[in-house]
Design a protein around this nucleic acid. Sequence first.
RNA 1: GGAGCGGUAGCUCAGUUGGUUAGAGCGCUGCCCUGUCACGGCAGAGGCCGCGGGUUCGAGUCCCGUCCGCUCCGCCA
Length: 592
Amino acid sequence: MRTHHCNELRSAHIGETATLIGWVNTVRDHHGVIFVDLRDREGVTQVVFRPEENAAAAAASHKLRDEDVVQITGKVAKRLEGTANDKIATGGIEIVATELVIVNKADVLPFQLDKELSNEDLRMKYRYLDIRRPRMSRNLRLRHRVTKATRDYLDEAGFCEIETPVLSKSTPEGARDFLVPSRLQPGAFSALPQAPQQYTQLLMVGGIEKYFQIAKCFRDEDLRADRQPEFTQIDIEASFVGQEDIISLVEGLLGRIFKEARNADIPQTFDRITWREAMDRYGSDKPDRRFGLELTDLADTFANSSFKVFSGALQSGGTVKAINAKGFANITTGQVEALTQIAVQAGAKGLAYIQVRGETPDTWRSPITKFLTPEELEALKAKLNIETGDLILFGAGPWEQVCEILGRVRLACAEYQKLLEGNEELNFLWVTEFPLLAFDDEAGRYVAVHHPFTRPLAEDEAKLLNGELSTGLRAQAYDVVLNGHELGGGSIRIHEGPLQSAMFRALGISEEQAAEEFGHILDAFRFGAPPHGGIALGLDRLVMLICNEHSIREVIAFPKNNKGSDLMSLSPAEVDPKQLRDLRIQTAKKPQ
RNA sequence: GGAGCGGUAGCUCAGUUGGUUAGAGCGCUGCCCUGUCACGGCAGAGGCCGCGGGUUCGAGUCCCGUCCGCUCCGCCA
């Protein structure tokens, strides 16, 4: 078989006999002399066929087509003077073929591997060919570097990789489950795990102390560029730790990953801000801090304004905020409309703005300046550092909503202004002190912001126990953010029965229901559960960012399309009626 | 569930205010070529313009519907 791969032979090998095997990358047939670029996963080596070396092989080489698998034996030779190719690492040499074995002919491919391909259907249908392309091959091998670095780092830190069940119990909280019907117990169902988290807590009760898993997780929700129904998490849980321990562990882990996968040195510690500050300044719980455009609070300026949109919002307990998009006064009408639409989608009634055309307010273009007093305009100018050419965008209303609206407007402005073009920065950030509870208007009750096992901040613990509920309660929950993407999130967990019961009560889960759904957890907490906490990092997103890709599909070997289908194997699909009979499932006809 | 963008040759795309026989590059097939590396040259094949309906003398182009893909919102503890 092969003696070398296709990115191995150099001038030092000249004179040796070598056997290579791989795919025909290109054929350049000059009739008398034929060049074949032979490719394997490592690279490309030029092979030259000459009739005088082996007439039969040279004759056969005329028939070679792209992507045939061939084995070639020949002498490594220095290329003729002036014909070296410095674009490839093997460009100084070539193989003068004395033997050609056509291992497997290839049909004409449905697309060219060396050209960009925009037809996603076709890529997915022939994913095995797509993977042959350098981009996908590089991404998948880089993904391996990341999981390898993860395992090495966590192993060295004393963590133990343990598999948790894929067939597990469906839980009502959280995302929609993928259900698996039980044959042995007709009418009963398992679910595929949305996260291993409940089992990992039980591993802590089991005394494992340091656990991790590179775990497949499943959520039956709509897809996005960064969301697939099955995805992978780096799941970590540890006992006798606090938030600081998890944070420094993850900082070290990401340092190792970026070093080994991308040879990048990232900060040893990341900046931290609280959730409240993140919302207040950036209008997002995963702020992209590679650019400014921060939100400025204008409560002082408009508390008593005669402009009711602003003063009314403040008087009813809300807020008024603005961002100054420096130098964006030349925004197009279409962009104003688009920004307004973004704001409205986020719950705004409209989007007030000022296009700053000159020094003095009379030169400003705006639908609202006519309602503002000269003093208010002066105060604005000072507070927002307004200069000619700026664009000011306002939000007024309930605090969290205003933050979210301007947060989205902020991102859109950055995109329009191309603030991130060519930016190679890796901006890591911890967001801490997430709220413990959010109020779900539809359900008419509180829901867990993270999950129902999240521990409140020590100073808010008594309130939870006493049932003094509010969205102001904070959790020992933290997210790690990279360039505006949530890389992962975790929390210190509740490990005592009474506190856990209080949490269930807060969420409107009855004692009976808690016993039924989570009885095993409450049981476990009775037998000496250690304090513990953990985090889960989204592996697909992490690798996507390391690969500079814009969709996690580019770093998953066989992903699903927008409708959740595998276009290669055509799954999901109808099944044999016998299988359904075994499962006591009566109908599975697609609604038409 | 909603919004936006797209669907023309195997692939990537162009196609003007509706107007003869729908184009280009790459790929493919055949022939020529002994130093190319995006080889070159000559010739050729290849189209339900996503699908259905409508307007019109005439539709790739306009209108309605529908399917598919992508992106976003909702949703994703």
